[in-house]
Simulated assay, not measured.
Amino acid sequence: MIYIVGIGPGSRDYVTKKAFDTVETSDFVLGSKRSLEIFEINGEKIELSVNLKNELYEFLKNYKNSDSKKKVSILSTGDPCFSGLLKTILSFDFVKKEDFEVFPGISSVQMAASKAKISWEDYNILTLHGKEENLKKLLNYVKNGEKVIFLPNNLKNDLKFLIENGISDEKEITVLENLSYSNERIITDKISNLLENDYSYLLVCIIN
C-alpha cells in the first residue's frame, strides 16, 4: 500500500500521530532531506532531489510492476492536497485512486493564518508554485481590493510583476517565512521595502 503523508510545515511539533505511526511501520519512506529528518525511520530511506517528480514516477512504476505488498510512505510537506504531492502522483497514468491513501497534514496556509490571527475563510487562496498563470489571478485580486493568501514562486519576481502591472509599491504585504522553524520570521511592510530583503523558499504571503 502507498501512503501520501502530510508532515506539516516543518517542525515535529506539527506532525500528526498518524503520520509518525505510518512512517515508523513503512518498508520504504520517500521524501526530501528535511522531511526525512523529522522521523525515526525503520525501513529503507529514499531521499528525493529537485527531480522528485521523475524519481517518484520511476519508484512507483517499479513498485506497481513488481506487485509488491510492501508499505510505502511518501512525505509531502504541509498538506498533500494543497500545493503538495497528491496532484503530482495523480498525474501518473498508471496510478489509480485505490492504490493509495492520503493522510492530511497542517498546511502552511493554516499555520500562516494562525500566526496572523485571521480567519482564512475570508481570503482567496492561491499557490504560484509552478503556476505562472496564477500571477494574473493574484493581480486581479489585489486590484479589486480582495484579501489574498498566496504561496509565492519567487517572491521578488512576483512583487515586481505586481508593480509592473499597476500595483503601488506602497502596498503592504505580510510575509511569513520558515513557519514553525527556529528561524521563523514574520514581516509586514511596503512592497518597496520587501524587495530589499532576501528570503528562503518557505514562504506564505498575506494581503489584506
Results as ranks from 00 to 15, higher is better:
M1I: 04
M1H: 10
I2M: 02
G6A: 09
G6F: 10
G8S: 14
G8N: 14
Y14R: 00
T16F: 13
T16A: 02
K17A: 07
D21G: 04
T25I: 12
S26G: 02
L30R: 04
L36R: 12
I38L: 14
F39D: 00
I41H: 15
K45I: 11
L48H: 05
N54K: 00
N54P: 00
F59R: 00
K61P: 07
K61G: 04
S66A: 13
L75T: 10
S76M: 10
T77W: 14
T77N: 15
D79V: 03
C81H: 08
F82M: 10
S83Q: 06
L85H: 09
L86P: 02
L86D: 09
T88V: 15
V95S: 13
E98V: 04
E98Q: 05
P104S: 00
P104V: 00
A112L: 13
A113C: 06
A116V: 10
D122H: 11
N124L: 07
I125A: 00
L128Q: 12
L128G: 12
H129L: 09
E132I: 08
N134Q: 05
K147T: 03
L151V: 05
N153S: 12
D158R: 02
K171I: 03
E172R: 14
I173L: 12
T174E: 07
L179R: 10
Y181W: 12
S182M: 10
N183R: 12
E184L: 05
R185H: 07
K190S: 07
K190F: 03
I191E: 08
L195P: 02
E196A: 10
Y199W: 05
L202E: 12
L203C: 06
V204C: 05
I207L: 06
N208F: 02
